[in-house]
Amino acid sequence: MSEHELSEQPLDTEIQTHINGRPIARRVRNRATLAQFLRDDLGLTGTKLSCELQVCGVCSVLVDDRPVSACTYLAVDVDGRQVRTVEGLACNGKLNALQSAFVENFALQCGFCTAGFLMMSTSLLERNPDPSEHEVVEYLDGNICRCTGYEPIVQAVLDAAGRIRAAGTSDD
């Protein structure tokens, strides 16, 4: 069944959203995923796709502060909501605490999973600014990395949490 066979009702929807704080109004296909919207319509290619079954975590973004898998989330569902992606983490070209900690701890190699880990880690630290190692592992267990063996990622998140707490403020 293709689009032209289903033409008795609209197959797209007008949405208004904020992406990394920037207001965006667009008409999107109902069938478009948030990942397609971000990557193909807005050119925000920092969000990657891999398993497309919500298990690898590569496409993790935050919608109204909740982590979601952009591969299995409709673009129309960001209507009226705030979306945060990896492109929104750095401030005026300066890496935030999590990004710096990932670089300094060698918590990435190929980097394809990294946006997802950063967004999930952002979500974790917003919920729990002082996580234990166990809590980090539990929260990030739904993200896959094939390069690092994970240990440097755990260290980076704990390191970033410490830096953010030491700075006394959330850095975003």
Binding site: G46, V86, L89, A90, L95, Q99, V103, L108, G111, L118
Partner: peptide, 8 residues
């Protein structure tokens, strides 16, 4: 790594 953590 730097451009990989910014999405660039």
């Amino acid at each position: 790594l730097k451009e990989k953590v910014t999405g660039a």
